[in-house]
Design a protein around this nucleic acid. Structure first.
Length: 310
DNA sequence: CGCATTTGACCAGCGC
DNA sequence: GCGCTGGTCAAATGCG
């Protein structure tokens, strides 16, 4: 075990550390960027080991999972927007994000979780695509009956806005967002009958951070021409850590490369089928799976990993 | 030609 | 009621 690893194990994670923090833990090991992988010491499981009880915090605070809501977020402080921080903010962290709360980013990213979510449900419920039909026939009864789509947001360090995740997306909109100079892009899964959407925006506070919000669950395997197998699909099903679009230079230029850090922090491994651009370390790769973080995350986000066809 | 992207317009919800 | 904002639509355009 390297010294860096020991330090990480000794690192005291604050009770409310966010996923973003996990992804962006400081490192003094430059070799991380060479292969795009984060050593196992950065994995979620190890982080939890280093902080007993962190798992509960992770569930209850960081991911803001509440029994009454299916929405799942990781969260971070929107430092510049001066948004209110809930009382759940606990302590400060030595990481790149000063603290996390259940509400800040969730509210920011999910600003539509109320009004626009309702609108989407109504529109979708109508089954009509023309705008005139959107004007009429919108009742509020259906919005109560319809389940909210699970929504997960991730912050990743990346120089590219749209991270490859194996699924095919079609961009259907782009909007300038308030309090940000960067536009927000809207994507929809191109697979028929799959209404998974994602929003991609760049953090105004940290332009190197891409905030990706997924809404819905894929009801289909990854396109075979992209992945080759549905088993691989499960490995990528969190939709945000596909290394295909990353190059070595990108990893080098970014201290905490998005795909690598995300996958490392979450304990996802990179299946290398068809992705020659990332030179994986086989040993590291194996350890990811052996560590069991993947299974842990599957438990945390069961619905995200793969929605089996009924 | 088929598919993806761009982009202006439109709509709904919310706060005032 | 009005303005602001986020989300979506769809025609136009681009591209392989």
């Amino acid at each position: 075990m390297s010294n860096e690893t020991k330090d990480l194990y000794n690192y005291q994670y604050p009770p409310s550390f966010s996923l973003y923090e996990l992804m962006t833990l400081p490192t003094s090991t430059p070799s991380y960027g060479n292969n795009g992988y984060v050593p196992p010491s950065y994995s979620l499981g190890d982080c939890l080991q280093s902080s007993p009880g962190a798992y509960d915090s992770l569930l209850q605070k960081t991911f803001a999972i509440s029994p009454s809501s299916s929405e799942v977020f990781n969260s971070y402080i929107d430092q510049d927007s001066k948004r209110e921080v809930s009382n759940d903010v606990i302590g400060e962290t030595p990481t790149r994000v000063s603290a996390s709360s259940c509400s800040s980013e969730a509210d920011h990213l999910g600003e539509d979780s109320g009004k626009s979510q309702r609108k989407r449900e109504l529109v979708g419920d109508g089954g009509e695509t023309n705008q005139s039909s959107k004007k009429v026939g919108k009742t509020k009864k259906n919005e109560e009956k319809k389940q909210r789509e699970p929504r997960v947001s991730f912050m990743t360090k990346s120089e590219v806005d749209h991270l490859e995740d194996g699924y095919r997306w079609r961009k259907y909109g782009q909007k300038a967002v308030k309090n940000s100079i960067y536009p927000r892009s809207y994507y929809r899964c191109t697979t028929q009958k799959c209404n998974v959407k994602k929003r991609v925006e760049r953090s105004f506070q940290d332009p190197t951070v891409v905030i990706t919000t997924y809404e819905g669950q894929h009801n289909h395997p990854l396109p075979t021409n992209l992945r080759g197998s549905s088993a691989t699909a499960a490995m990528y099903s969190a939709d945000f850590m596909t290394p295909r679009s990353f190059t070595h230079d990108m990893f080098r230029s970014s201290a905490y490369s998005s795909g690598g850090s995300a996958a490392g922090a979450l304990g996802y491994g990179y299946e290398q089928s068809g992705y020659g651009s990332v030179n994986a370390n086989p040993n590291t790769h194996q350890e990811y799976h052996q560590g069991g973080e993947y299974e842990l995350l599957k438990e945390i986000f069961p619905s995200i990993f793969f929605k089996q066809e009924p």
